[in-house]
Write a protein that binds this DNA or RNA. Structure first.
Lengths: 230, 230
DNA sequence: CGTTCAATTGATCAGCGTCAAACTAGGTGG
DNA sequence: CCACCTAGTTTGACGCTGATCAATTGAACG
């Protein structure tokens, strides 16, 4: 465990209030590892051995059942994932794979649970983190239950535009087939959804999306503070 | 705040480790109230003023967007709800209404947050509670994203059968239209889903469901430890 | 015994998935 | 530098799932 790795962890709100010695203790046995793209990190039914911290790259959390598969969420650096599973000492519940070459800090789940029961500041932050994660899934659940595929895409575009500086031109940060899976549709249907949005001023050129009539797009999308990420 | 109410709260794992004086403090300003059926307790965009404890009756958490509405989960006594919202001092995120006459203990959210920062035992239990809630929504999200309507119904029947003593006959604990909404379909489609399950040994008589070929049902449902509640 | 609302049934339609084929872009080797 | 390969994307045709609309049946309650 080198200093730089400790600094990465310390920069996260989740660990910001943890006592120095508890942090050191938790990080013993942790290791920073680089994975190539498309590597499966763990499967949903595996027992949770590590809390993961994505330091660099991109990770997809997905789930499988029957013969179907769906993206549940995407992790961008720097962020932790599978905290809830690490704390409850259960299965991961979701599978994970790298979408690109990624650097991941792996912290033994047992260490995290020990820190949790010993460190008051950490427990407080964990409560906050878990509450936010919970609301995140609730939003995703509402999104898929209350909106059509085209509406989900329209709202995705609006959120990306806000995140990328409200310029009216966005660059998709992921492949379209991954986006399709995250929005709960097939790649073919995503193509058609983009076509459906053409009359609403959406122009597509590869990974670049141009929003020519923001007002019309919003009218269709009906964005909601209680569904879409801020 | 009478003793009986305190005993109810104390019986919940979430509050089991809280120090006596912190518990008393938290319960000042709390009140037990009875609501008739079909009453809206709060709306998703409302600011969270109270942590709710359902003591008796049944409550539906639902969400609305555009002109659609969907049941997100059902609360059965004795259980808390909207803990995450109370702790983050944000909007409820979900709306709530009583499905039947219900008794609810309402604890000021500010008191809960105070207790959280003062009481180590409570913080530990809150972490656990939130992690379990999180996995609960993840399951629901996987359920709707990876299964068809008929599969969701089949798995619902299997879970209910297990909960009601594996007798092969279950009694639906809610109206069919509520069940339909929870399973993410229309009441009409639920009727047809039951009809689809007839060849798999499902007989319906009002709220009573008979499972005549458990094996066939399971083959269709493909139940998963990682989606269906235990 | 009539009112009311849930549940069912039928007909139709929209949304989305599946399958197949064509097209495109990025990378590789000749 | 170009031909070629591969994988992602797009387009078209078709079919299934589930929603909508309308009408009927059934059950609970005053």
């Amino acid at each position: 465990m080198r200093t730089s790795e400790k600094e990465i962890v310390r920069s996260l709100p989740l660990f910001s209030e943890m006592a120095e010695d508890h942090l050191d203790e938790m990080l013993t046995g942790s290791f920073l590892q680089r994975f190539p793209a498309t590597v499966v990190l763990f499967s949903e039914s595996d027992h949770t051995d590590f809390l993961h911290v994505l330091v660099d790259g991109q990770v997809e959390l997905y789930a499988s059942a029957n013969n179907r598969e769906g993206t549940m969420t995407l992790i961008k650096p720097v962020a932790t994932f599978v905290l809830a599973s690490a704390l409850t000492d259960s299965a991961y519940q979701l599978s994970a794979r790298t979408l690109e070459s990624s650097q991941i800090l792996m912290i033994p789940a047992q260490n995290v649970r020990t820190a949790m029961s010993n460190d008051q500041g950490f427990a407080q932050k964990a409560v906050r983190e878990l509450a936010l994660c919970y609301h995140g899934v609730v939003r995703a659940y509402k999104n898929i239950k209350l909106r059509t595929a085209v509406e989900r895409l329209a709202n995705y575009i609006i959120v990306q535009n806000r995140r990328q500086g409200e310029t009216g031109v966005i660059k998709l940060p992921i492949e379209k087939r991954t986006l399709a899976s995250m929005l709960g549709m097939t790649p073919e249907n995503l193509s058609r959804a983009f076509a459906t949005l053409k009359p609403y001023g959406i122009r597509v050129d590869g990974a670049e999306i141009c929003i020519e009539k923001p007002g019309d797009l919003e009218t269709l999308a009906k964005p909601s503070e209680l569904i879409d990420a801020h």
